[in-house]
C-alpha cells in the first residue's frame, strides 16, 4: 500500500430519497440505497433509466432536487468532502482530456495536486496502464485510441487516485470479452487489496454476477429490486426477469396456426 493513502479503506455510501428532474421530466423518482464499505455494488437497468445521472449525484457533480447522499455519514454537498475522501468516477465515455496525452491524463491528479515527482508519476502511470492491459500508449493522444482503450485509460486514471470509492459507468460496454474479463478482475482485485467501495453500473450480466456483492435493478428512475446476486436472480418481478434473461432467438417462434397440424 502507498504511504500517501491516509485511509486505505472504502467508504460507505447512503442515498436517501434522491429525486432529480431535468426540464420538468423527472429522471430519478426517489432512490434509496446503501452501499457498505468495501462492497461491490452493481446497478443494472435499461438505457435511459437514470443510472448515469445517479452516479453523477453520488459523486457530487449534480445537486439533487430532493434527498441526500452521504459519504461515511457526511453529505456529498459539503465543500470539504472532496479533499477529505478520494472519490473517482469512470465516465461512460471515458471523458479523457483531449488536449493532453494519455500519460498526462492518467497522471493528472498527481501532477495537479503535486503529490509526486515527475519520475515517480511516470512510473505510476505505466504501472496503472499495465494494470488495465495497456502498454506503450502513454505518449499517444486520446483521439488516437479506440473507444475501449479510452475506457481503460479512464479506469487507469481513476486507479491513480487510489480511491476509497470508485464509480464505474458501464466499464465494459465497449470492450471485447477478453478485456472485459481483465476489467472485472481488476475491480475484484481492488476490493480485495485496498478494500475500496465500488459501484458498478453495467448491463453486462456476466460482469455483474461475476463481481457483485449486491445488485440493484433500476427502472424508470426507481429501484425495482435490491439484493445479493442469488436473491436478484430469484426475484419474481417480471421486469427483472425479462431484463436478466433477455436473449434473442435464432429461430423465430412458430406461428400458432402451425401447431394445430403437428
Amino acid at each position: 500500500m502507498n504511504a500517501s493513502a491516509p485511509n486505505p479503506y472504502g467508504v460507505s455510501v447512503q442515498v436517501r430519497g434522491l429525486r432529480k428532474s431535468f426540464d420538468g421530466q423527472e429522471v430519478l423518482k426517489g432512490i434509496d440505497l446503501e452501499v457498505r464499505p468495501g462492497e461491490i455494488f452493481v446497478i443494472m437497468g435499461p438505457s435511459g433509466s437514470g443510472k448515469s445521472v445517479l452516479l453523477k449525484h453520488i459523486i457530487g457533480l449534480d445537486p439533487p432536487d430532493d434527498g441526500e447522499i452521504l459519504i461515511n455519514g457526511e453529505s456529498i454537498q459539503t465543500p470539504e468532502i472532496a479533499s477529505k475522501y478520494r472519490l473517482a468516477l469512470v465516465f461512460q465515455s471515458g471523458a479523457l482530456l483531449n488536449s493532453l496525452t494519455v500519460g498526462e491524463n492518467v497522471g493528472l491528479y498527481l501532477t495537479e495536486h503535486r503529490l509526486k515527482s515527475p519520475e515517480e508519476i511516470s512510473k505510476i502511470v505505466s504501472e496503472k496502464l499495465e494494470a488495465v492491459g495497456l502498454k506503450d500508449v502513454a505518449d499517444k493522444m486520446p483521439n488516437e485510441l479506440s473507444g475501449g482503450m479510452k475506457k481503460r485509460v479512464a479506469i487507469a486514471r481513476a486507479l491513480v487516485i487510489e480511491p476509497q470509492l470508485i464509480l464505474y459507468d458501464e466499464p465494459t460496454s465497449e470492450l471485447d470479452p477478453l478485456s472485459a474479463v481483465v476489467i472485472g478482475e481488476e475491480i475484484l482485485k481492488l476490493k480485495n487489496e485496498i478494500h475500496v467501495t465500488s459501484i458498478v453500473v453495467s448491463h453486462d450480466r456476466e460482469l455483474a454476477f461475476g463481481v457483485a456483492d449486491r445488485i440493484a435493478v433500476i427502472n424508470d428512475g426507481r429501484i425495482v429490486t435490491i439484493g445479493t446476486p442469488d436473491e436478484v436472480k430469484k426475484t419474481s418481478d417480471p421486469l427483472v426477469q425479462r431484463f436478466l434473461n433477455a436473449d434473442f432467438k435464432r429461430d423465430p417462434p412458430k406461428p400458432k396456426a402451425y401447431e394445430k397440424f403437428t
Binding site: 473517482a88 468516477l89 471523458a95 483531449n98 491528479y109 495536486h113 486514471r157
Partner: peptide, 20 residues
Amino acid sequence: AEIGSMRVYQEIDALRTMNI
C-alpha cells in the same frame, strides 16, 4: 470553443471529480 467542448464532452466534470 475549447472550453465549450470540454464541457460538452464531460472533461470538465472529469476535472471536478479529480478535485481540480
